[in-house]
Amino acid sequence: MPLSEHEQRLLEEMERSLYQNDADFVAKVGGKRARPAYRSIVLGVLIAVVGVAVLIVGVFFQLPIVGILGFVVMFAGVLLAIAPGKRVAVDPDAPAAKGAGGSSRTQPGFMDRMNDRWDKRQDGQG
């Protein structure tokens, strides 16, 4: 069942509004992510295990300062393990450069693919 003209206009207006109001969100979501830093994860887990061991030793010998130190080491290890990897910077001028020179070989983002699908669908109906 095709959309009525009124519904199509509303949909187009909502789409324009989304692009105008949420450009920052679209840029953040469209950014590329790097692979997880496996070295940091392994190192963080090892540090956390050492921290747990120091914490247990502090509790066993009833030494609060050793227990607190163990907790701090454990917490630092967990933070290191869950820290996100470095993201690849997204150049806001990349689409313009790709269109002009054609030398940029980046894959289109999610929103670009959705826009292309939308344009193809509109061309097929009109």
Rank of each mutant, 00 (worst) to 15 (best):
V90Q: 08
A48E: 00
E13I: 06
A48F: 09
L18D: 02
V73P: 11
V78P: 10
A89I: 14
V49G: 06
S103H: 12
R87W: 11
S17I: 05
R113E: 00
S4A: 00
A96N: 07
R105P: 15
S4V: 08
I65T: 09
A83M: 15
L63W: 02
G30F: 01
A76H: 04
D93N: 10
V26S: 01
V57L: 15
V59A: 08
V72I: 14
G51I: 06
G67C: 02
P92G: 00
D91R: 01
F61E: 04
A23T: 14
A89N: 07
V49M: 12
F60C: 01
P108E: 01
Q62M: 09
A81W: 04
I41H: 02
Y19G: 03
A96G: 11
Q125L: 07
R121D: 01
G126I: 07
R121P: 04
T106W: 13
H6G: 08
G124C: 03
K98P: 09
G67V: 04
A48W: 03
K120I: 12
V54M: 05
I68W: 14
G102Y: 01
K32I: 07
I65P: 14
K86G: 10
L69P: 06
E12D: 11
F71R: 10
V78M: 05
L79W: 15
M74I: 04
I56V: 09
V29Y: 13
F75T: 12
K98Q: 12
P92Y: 01
V78H: 06
K32L: 09
V42K: 04
M114T: 07
R87S: 07
R113N: 05
S104L: 14
A83Q: 13
L79S: 06
W118Q: 15
G109M: 02
R33D: 06
M111G: 08
P84Q: 03
V66L: 08
V42M: 01
A97W: 14
G51V: 05
R105S: 12
G51Q: 01
R16S: 05
R16T: 12
V72Y: 08
Q62S: 07
S104K: 13
L69I: 13
S17K: 11
I65D: 05
Q20M: 11
A81D: 01
E15S: 05
G44S: 01
Q107W: 14
R105F: 14
M114P: 08
L11W: 15
P2A: 00
P64C: 00
A83F: 06
R39G: 03
F61D: 10
R117W: 14
V59Q: 05
G31T: 11
A27C: 00
A96T: 11
L18G: 11
R39T: 10
E13A: 15
V50K: 05
G85V: 07
V78S: 08
V66A: 00
V78D: 02
W118G: 13
D91P: 02
G31Q: 09
V88W: 03
L3Y: 13
A83Y: 04
D93M: 13
N115W: 14
K32P: 02
G70P: 05
I82Q: 03
I47Q: 08
D119K: 15
A83G: 04
I41R: 02
L10S: 06
D116L: 09
A94E: 14
F75D: 03
L55V: 03
Q122F: 10
R87K: 15
K86R: 13
P64I: 10
D112W: 10
A89T: 15
V72M: 10
